[in-house]
Structure formats: structure tokens, C-alpha cells
Design a protein around this nucleic acid. Structure first.
Lengths: 197, 197, 197, 197
DNA sequence: CCCTAATCGAGACGGTACGTCTCGTCTTATC
DNA sequence: GATAAGACGAGACGTACCGTCTCGATTAGGG
């Protein structure tokens, strides 16, 4: 009896298979990549992963949650090291990465999740931490280094600058649906540099 | 005789009631205002407008299309005259208007439509013309006046500047979910002014 | 005033076009012939006849009524003269005609109308007069002649005999969906003859 | 292990609730009994049975299929034992039962199903086995006994006789809409007896 | 020869059932 | 306990047809 109580919540019963976690995420990723996001169904994910619906619902509360998971994995693959190059180079590279994501196959899923966050507090937090703050942090963390390296002033209002930088990309790629070329990025970054130095 | 020939094919049959157009739009507007967008249903709109479902589907192909119509009407009410004030004042007032819309009851609907436009070319065009280009035009039209008044240089790249301006608002209000105060707006506008003069 | 009253209902206004009556009936006939009865629509009839829906509804209250009209025309083409042959020959020929109708393209429409008559008193009367009583009358009228010719007794219960005769055909062709060959008909008729002589 | 393999594909997943089967049939039966068949809706059945539409469509493809099920249950309740009475008595009793069904609340549903069978092979077979052949079999099975008991000849053409017997009832009650009294039945049966002995 | 009232084609309209779909929960037997 | 399979309630979807209606245009026949 005490054994059961001790175990409860941690290791009781058959443990969840991590392989299934991976299978589900993988299936969801592929489906989001190759068909309109609106047509991706929990059922289709279950079918593709060779898993029952209940197995999915046991891990995530709904499609949006899975999608966030998928997006997080994708963004994790986009590493932006800040070494041996100037802050300007760093920003250019970073924004090129963001451009790829926002104009690629996952754009639709990203907007869908953003839409969902409008009246879903929980998802909003998850998405923010997994995606937004991660990017913002990359920019700001490196800004600190830049300040220390003397490439940037120390008295600027960080918030607004990155709102401008990221906002322009989200707006132009997801709302206006116009492309962004390297020249556009460099001018954007120069505009930022000008404001912080 | 020729009169009849000319009319044939265009005005034949019972004409659609404009009163019903209004009733439907009005009902949709109210429902979008007072409940989560996801819970607004074609059926609920029909019920509220005192209209049959077919009457709605005869005019719009789906919920998104009606929503664009609703948003257009809303944006039309947001008139921003440019008289007797400086271009700076004008921009500040305009952005305050955009802030109201993007942080008000219609924000959810706007994002939902943006999500829908990701893989719906037709809707994308309608939404762009009805909403995006209208705002962009307001900014740019007045910029022309500002240039003529000597308040702005003539050789700037308009596109990017307004991408920055609008993008920041969309991003901060709809994605990051942080508020924008008057001070923030003024600094944004000053930043724009600085770039164009 | 009295003038108007006198006219009302007779000749005032533009008279209905008989040509359209024919066009509608013809279109309905062809559609019933070549597609499942359930798929024949007032709208499809209107389209095929090059006529508006209102023009049809001005003449008949619903699809069943048109169908009865169509069936009547068909049955009128099936004339069974009783001349120079025995009553037995006459019955055989008549039943062969009924067989053709009940196993042809109009069978479906006939059953549909019969179904409709179950809770539609008005249609029931129309159908009865246009179709059932016409056939029954053919049998009975000739029975009178047969009695006078000495081919039949005068004291038989006519009702039941023809119920048997027609009923067998309706049941076997429309309900059981088995065919009826000439031998079957002759045995049926002989059975009837035996009972009346 | 082999047990599991054998079962797989047949008994996997949550089994369908038999209680719901009953609830649906019961609801359909009551609705067919108390309102015009044309007004009985899948939705009304679902509502009355306290069941979702999908649960009904999972079991039957459409209203006709449910109706056949209902009719089968009704006909099963009409048992006609053949004991201690003559074959003539038996036939009279049986036909009285058929009369009750064909002139009762289910007549409308029966004709509707018959209409549906005209261009629906699948339904035709189901209806035939569930309803027609069952009645035919009752008559014929007892005829065998009658032959063995010496009440009937052994060389008669069974098919036509029962076509006559049943056909007369269907035709008179469902098509001509005239009633059938006990005297009529006895004369019908006598006519049959005369033909088989 | 014009006037008038009904007809006509076209198609909008309210109503309503259809059969399908997805969601998120549940039940069962198996592992 | 987790798992696969899939039933289940709920309810929206978009389509289809019904029978009525509203238009403007068109006819005949009576004045």
C-alpha cells in the first residue's frame, strides 16, 4: 500500500514510452510540412504515428500544444552562434534564420498558434517561452556582449528595438506576404545599429 | 428594346436585399464583439440576423469572408484626417487608432483571418485590399503631403518604414501581448521621423 | 365593379401558355425515364423545360402531381381494344400491357406516388381516378361485354377478382421484384376465368 | 496469443453498445408510429433516443435501413403458430395478421421502403429477407404440413398462389385504400384452398 | 391602340434535413 | 497503469431542395 502511494505520480504502472513521444512529434512535423495546417487532424497524426488518439491526448491537451512542441524543435535546430564576428554580422545571420522559418512550411502553423493564443492564456505562455522569448533572448543576450565589446551603447531601450526588428519580419512575411531579401535585412540591421550606437 | 437586351443577364431575377446584407454584417459584428471568435458560427449569425443559412452562403463562401467584411467596415470608421496638424501629430493619431483596433475586441478576428490567408490566395487579396493596403495608403498618402510641406525627405524607402511602424504594432499587440502606451507610440513615430528627414 | 367580378378567374390578363404545359410534361417524362426518380427535382424539370420554377408551381402543387400527370399520359397510350377476340385473349393482352408499365422505367415513379398517397388524400383521389380506376374500369367494362356474350357468369363478385389480378402484378413486380412471363399471365387469367364462369 | 491474433480486426476497440441499438430502434418505432413517415427525421430519432447523429449513421446508412429494422421487429412479433387447427384456419389467422400490419400505423413506412427498394439493390435484399420471404415462408412452411396432413395437393405451383394471396392484400390496402373485412379474407382463403386441393 | 392584369424567366428567400467531419472523452481488451 | 482500436455526444459544416416571394419584362384581350 505505502509502496503504491509512494510511487503514485512518479513511476507507478507502465511508464510512457518515449519512442511514442518521438513518433507522434515526427508524424505531426511531417504532416504540418506537407499539407495545409487546417487539414492536419489529431486523427491523422495518430494514424501516421501508428498510435491511438488517447495516447496523444494523454501527452498534449490539443493540436496547438503539439504544434508548439513541433515548432520548438524546429527553432532549436536554428542555432546562432556569436563568435568571431561583429554584432552586425550576428544580427544579419539571425534575421536570415528567422526569415527562413517565417517564409517556410511552418509559417502557417506559427500563425495558427498565434491565433490560438489570442484567447488561450495557457498556450500563450507556452508559445511565448518556447518561441518568442527564445528569439528575443538571443538578440538581447548578444546585445549585452556587444555592449561589453563596445559595439553598442548601454542606455538604449532594448524592448522597442527588437519589437521593431522582429515585428517587421512577422508583418511583412505573414501579413503582407512580401518577400525579404538580404539587402532588406542589412538595411534593417543598419537601422538598428544606428539606434543603439 | 435595347434597354432590355442590355439588362438581360445582369439584373435578372429578384435582386438581393441590401437590408439583409446589413443585417448579416451587423449580426456578425456583434457576435464577434461579444464572444470568442472560435465560437461564432455561421448558424449563430444566421439566427441573430433573422436570416437563413443559405442567404449567408449566397453572399460569402465562409466565415472568414464575412469577417473581412466586418473588419473593413470597422476600419472605415477609423478616419484619420490630416489637416492643420503636423505630419508627426498625424502619425501619432493614426497609430493610436491602429492600437485601439489591434488591442480591442476585433483582434482575435483579425489574427484568425491572417491565419486563414496563409493558404487562401483569394482571401489574402480581399483582406489585403480591404485592410492592409488601406492603412498603408493612409500613411503613404499623407507622407506625400509631408514631403510637399517640407516635413520629409523625398528620397526615402517608404516600404520598409511602414513595415517597421505597422509591424511593431502587430507584433507587440498580437504576438507578444504587451500593451503600447502613448509614450511608446511617440518614440516609435520620432524614430520614423528621424529616418525620413 | 361587377365587371371585374365577372371577369375574375376566367379570361383577364395574359393566358397561360399551353406550349409550356407540354414542355414541362415532356421534360418531366424524360427525366423520370432516364434517372432515379428520387433525383428528379422540380428544379431539374424547370431547367430542362426552359421554364422558371414559378411557372411549374402555378400549374401543379408539387412533384407528385406532375408525376401523376406524366403517368396518366403514359397509360393513355396503352389502349386495349376489345374487338373480335375472346374475353380471355383480351385479359391476357391487357395484363401484358400492365406488365410492361410496372416493369418499365416508370415503375419507380408509380411506387413513389403510391407512397405519397398514403398520407395525402388529395393526391390519392387524383391518382386513383387517373390510374387505378382506369385500369379497373377496362377490366370490368369488358367483363360486362363478356357477360352479355355469355363468356362469364352474371353473379360474381367483381371486386375481389380484379384485386387478385392486379394485386398479383403489383406485388410480384414492384415488391418481390420477380419477372412475369407470358405463361404466368395465362395461368393467372385462366384462374380468373375459372372463377367467373 | 493466438487468441489475440484471431480477434484482431473483429473485436478490437470499444464495442458498440447494444443498449444504444435498442434505444435507437425504439425511438424510431415510436416516431414512425405517431407521425407521418415523411416527417420522421434522423435528427428526431437521435434526439428521442438521446443519441448523437453519428451513432446512428455508424449503424445504418440512412433512414430506410433503420425502417427495415423496425419493420422486421414488428413482423417478428406477429407469430402465427400452426397447431391443432386446420390449414384453412391457419391461413385466415395469418392473413388477418397481415391485414393488421398493412392497415396500421406502419403501412406508410412499408410503402416508403418499397419505393426505396426500386433503385436500391442492397436495401431490396435486406427488405426481402427481413419481411417478404419471412411471410412467404410462413405460408409455404405450413403448406408443407398441410400437404402431409392431406389438406392440400402436392403438385401445385406454390409461387403464384401466394403472390395472389399477398398481392391482393398489398394492392387493396396500400394502393386502392379499401378495407378488408373477415368475410373477404375467408373468401380469399377459400379461393386458395380450392386451387390447391 | 392603349390599358390592364396575369404570365413569364430569373433567382432571392426562409426553412430544414442531409450526411460528413472533428473534437475530446470514454470503454474494452490486451500488454 | 499504458496502449490500440474505435465508440460516443456534441455540434458545425456546406449542400441541396422545397415552396414562396419579388422583380422587371412580356403578352393577350378588353376598352
Amino acid at each position: 500500500m505505502s509502496k503504491a502511494l509512494l510511487k503514485r505520480g512518479s513511476g507507478a504502472g507502465r511508464p510512457r514510452s518515449q519512442a511514442l513521444d518521438e513518433a507522434i512529434i515526427e508524424a505531426a512535423t511531417q504532416l504540418i510540412e506537407c499539407m495545409p495546417y487546417g487539414e492536419v487532424t489529431i486523427e491523422s497524426i495518430a494514424l501516421k504515428a501508428g498510435v491511438s488518439k488517447a495516447t496523444i491526448y494523454r501527452r498534449w491537451p490539443n493540436k496547438s500544444a503539439i504544434t508548439v512542441e513541433v515548432l520548438l524543435r524546429q527553432s532549436l535546430q536554428m542555432q546562432i552562434p556569436f563568435e568571431a564576428v561583429s554584432y552586425r554580422e550576428h544580427l544579419v545571420t539571425g534575421m536570415q534564420g528567422l526569415r527562413e522559418i517565417l517564409s517556410g512550411v511552418f509559417a502557417e502553423a506559427i500563425v495558427a498558434v498565434i491565433a490560438e493564443t489570442q484567447n488561450n492564456e495557457v498556450l500563450r505562455k507556452i508559445f511565448y517561452q518556447a518561441f518568442i522569448s527564445r528569439m528575443q533572448a538571443i538578440g538581447e543576450a548578444d546585445l549585452e556582449k556587444a555592449i561589453q565589446l563596445g559595439e553598442a551603447r548601454g542606455d538604449i531601450t532594448k524592448g522597442m528595438i527588437f519589437d521593431q526588428l522582429f515585428g517587421t519580419f512577422y508583418y511583412r512575411l505573414l501579413v503582407v506576404h512580401k518577400s525579404i531579401d538580404d539587402d532588406y535585412i542589412e538595411r534593417m540591421v543598419d537601422s538598428v545599429i544606428r539606434q543603439i550606437s
